[in-house]
């Protein structure tokens, strides 16, 4: 997987994929076509998250979800983008099971202030490094951090920050108000930030570099 690539922007005016109409009609050949067209990319993505052993199961889970939900696919994203989101989510959920850790509470990861409103949680000075995302430790921290977030928090980060939808589009996708989406997204980002800081704070990265 190209680690430096950015999430594509959705094209709301794109013509619906003709394959989608056939899928909705229950055309079995269309299901096979979807699997063969998109399955290889999804398998590569799943391997990057859960490793070789569990990747095929993640892809199967993702396709089953996609088959069930095809009637709700609105064409706001391209079919491949939608499937990418589903397989990433499926792989992160499997990753959580592999980690055998309970889901984390957003409240416990929220910013902390003292009685006068001053920030009191530890802060990190970030290493100014453009290829931070390519560091194995940072990638693992993103994957494990997202895997540990509650479902609602993980889903909105996948829509907004990973897929690149606008906050308004993410709210529509989740069926919540924009104001609710904003609160949910902010709490999710703040929590993920806390989980990532040990991996990308300057001190930690320097230590990783020194050990290498």
């Amino acid at each position: 997987m190209d680690q430096t690539a950015t999430a594509p922007r959705v094209d709301a005016d794109a013509n619906p994929d003709p394959l989608v109409a056939r899928l909705r009609a229950g055309d079995r050949a269309a299901y096979a076509e979807m699997v063969r067209t998109h399955g290889g990319r999804m398998l590569a993505v799943a391997r990057g998250i859960v490793g070789e052993g569990d990747a095929a199961d993640c892809v199967q889970d993702a396709f089953l979800q996609a088959f069930r939900k095809i009637d709700t696919f609105e064409g706001q994203a391209a079919l491949g983008t939608w499937l990418h989101r589903i397989v990433v989510n499926a792989a992160l959920m499997r990753r959580r099971k592999m980690m055998a850790r309970p889901e984390l509470s957003l409240d416990e990861l929220a910013p902390v202030f003292d009685d006068t409103g001053c920030r009191v949680e530890p802060t990190y000075t970030l290493l100014d490094e453009p290829d931070l995302a390519e560091r194995t430790e940072v990638r693992a921290a993103i994957i494990d951090g997202l895997a540990q977030l509650p479902d609602e928090a993980r889903q909105i980060i996948l829509l907004r920050d990973v897929e690149g939808l606008s906050t308004d589009q993410a709210a529509t996708e989740l069926g919540v108000s924009v104001s609710a989406a904003k609160v949910r997204l902010h709490r999710a980002r703040a929590a993920l930030k806390r989980l990532l800081e040990p991996a990308f704070g300057a001190d930690s990265v320097a230590e990783i570099g020194a050990e290498a």
Binding site: Q3, T4, A5, T6, A7, P8, V45, I49, G80, T81, H84, V88, L132, A133, V138, R139, I142, I143, L146, I157, L158, D161, V162, E163, G164, R189, L192, K193, L196, F200
Partner: peptide
């Protein structure tokens, strides 16, 4: 944090 999500897991 916002940027790394897309860089690591984006399509």
């Amino acid at each position: 944090t916002m940027a790394l999500g897309g860089q690591v897991l984006g399509a």
